[in-house]
Design a protein around this nucleic acid. Structure first.
Length: 425
RNA sequence: GGAGAGGUGGCCGAGUGGCUUAAGGCAACGGUUUGCUAAACCGUCAUAGUAUCGUAAGGUGCUAUCGGGGGUUCGAAUCCCCCCCUCUCCGCCA
């Protein structure tokens, strides 16, 4: 959420951000917002003057009554004042909720280092690491074929149990998945200094609002009406909200959390191309990294977040590239975002395995996450960042395909063997 | 699911309609005293909104906030209703 004061003082900058995000149709909302803001402040000024009067006169009434005097006329007068206050307060609440509704829908302002572009075609390649890219002397099988022939993955039975898009891992496939999760968590804890979190997988609406999935992206989230709970689309939601409504100490920053969770996404409206197997699923596993950082260091923290994620791919010796997303392709909550894509030999294309973003104070303002530099200083909003490190689904695709042998088996990468306890599948 | 007890500032805790601008204590911070530490004493000690002064840091006024929301009243931490959370007991249960 953007600061209404910032919008009031920089309306053209905010409108330009919308245009750069290919949302030029939304710029009129800024004018509406500013009108509501003027109206809101006008009512506040009027109603607070009346409240000050009422508070003053109520004290006078108390004093008169204490001396057994008659205050009937003042009471009658204050009754009409109170009625006016009630009426103004209703108008204020209506104006505020309209303003809030627009504010919650507005996207973040992209950082100045983000390239302006209309869509994914204008993302720029930030870095490519293809040293481990493998030349096959046979036609590589895809992950579906490998998963089926080796008995690792059973999408048909997953569909029988739950529906399409709910993967079922079996035997060494399940073990390999668990090994990947443990390997990634251990690396982040031991080498990168993150604190492990195991969060709830269901959250309330306030948490989704805090990280920005509600209201704009709520159609992507599974909802259980009977309990009014939402299945987390990413551990970002529960982990970022750990500190919702809190004032953190400057000396504790940055705070770095790493969390495994299952992730649930309805992927409404995205059936069709590129949906087979793991390429698009409703449930997947992910290790998520979340940082709470000082505003002046958050962009440095973004760079290390990306390298923390790619360390996994380097260790697994999988080829990948890092994209810097342009204004038109970046998600609404982010100020700057890198995608990490891992190479699929069978698909002959890069698959998104991670998204690392700096939200600046966008989520912090929604979730009320602040900090004080020291005892004396005023509270400021913190900067939040998060990135997958990594999602196992696309990683599993790349891993199975890259490590397949000519006779249809899988060589387990060295770093995973302590976890799998087997070297070949 | 049933019954009961609770939720007050960073923490503890008083507060049954106006005398509370939320008592008192602890912790923290600044200072005085002090050979050093400790103690004592003095002071500071919320958050947000809004208006205003200031180049700014910040100051000042007003308003709101005692788990959340609504109601009664001239006036609510206090009375009423709904909800959330915590604890105790009972029941059920993977």
């Amino acid at each position: 959420m953007l600061d209404i004061k910032y919008i009031r003082e920089n309306p053209d900058h905010v409108k330009a951000a919308l245009v750069n995000r290919q949302m030029s149709g939304e710029t009129a909302k800024i004018d509406t917002l500013l009108q509501l803001d003027t109206e809101r402040r006008r009512i506040i000024s009027e109603v607070e003057t009346l409240k000050a009067t009422r508070n003053k006169v109520s004290d006078d009434i108390a004093a008169i009554k204490k001396q057994k005097g008659n205050a009937d006329a003042m009471i009658a007068e204050m009754k009409t004042v109170s009625d006016t206050i009630a009426s103004l307060d209703r108008g204020l609440a209506a104006t505020q909720s309209q303003q809030e509704e627009i504010l919650l829908q507005l996207p973040n302002v992209p950082h100045s280092s983000v390239p302006i572009g209309k869509d994914a075609s204008e993302n720029t390649v930030h870095k490519e690491v293809l040293t481990s890219k493998r030349e096959f002397d046979f036609a590589p099988k895809d992950h579906l074929e490998l998963g089926k022939s080796l008995g690792l993955l059973d999408f048909e039975r997953g569909a029988k149990i739950s529906g399409a898009g709910f993967p079922l891992y079996m035997g060494k496939g399940a073990t390999l998945e668990r090994a990947l999760i443990n390997f990634m968590l251990d690396l982040h804890l031991e080498k990168h200094g993150y604190t492990e979190i195991f969060p709830p997988f269901f959250v309330n609406q306030a948490s989704l609002r805090g990280t920005g999935q509600f209201p704009k992206f709520i159609d992507q989230v599974y909802h259980i009406p009977a309990y009014d709970l939402y299945a987390i689309p990413t551990a970002e939601v529960p982990v970022t909200n750990i500190h919702a409504g809190e004032v953190l100490k400057g000396k504790d920053l940055p705070i770095k959390y790493a969390a495994y969770s299952a992730c649930f996404r309805s992927e409404a409206g995205s059936y069709g191309a590129g949906t087979k197997g793991f390429l698009r699923v409703h449930q997947f596993n992910k290790v998520e990294m979340v940082k709470f950082a000082l505003p002046e260091t958050s962009y440095d923290e973004l760079e290390t977040l990306v390298s923390d994620a790619t360390d996994i791919l380097d260790a697994l010796q999988l080829p990948y590239r890092i994209l810097l997303l342009c204004t038109g392709d970046m998600s609404a909550n982010a100020a700057k975002c890198y995608d990490i894509e891992v190479w699929s030999p069978a698909e002959q294309k890069f698959l998104e395995a991670s998204s690392c973003s700096n939200f600046e104070d966008f989520q912090a303002r929604r979730a009320g996450i602040r900090f004080k530099r020291d005892e004396k200083s005023k509270t400021e909003f913190i900067h939040t960042l998060n990135g997958s490190g990594l999602a196992t689904s696309r990683l599993m695709v790349a891993l199975l395909e890259t490590y397949q042998t000519k006779d249809g088996h899988i060589t387990v990468p060295e770093v995973l063997r302590p976890y799998t306890k087997f070297a070949v599948i």
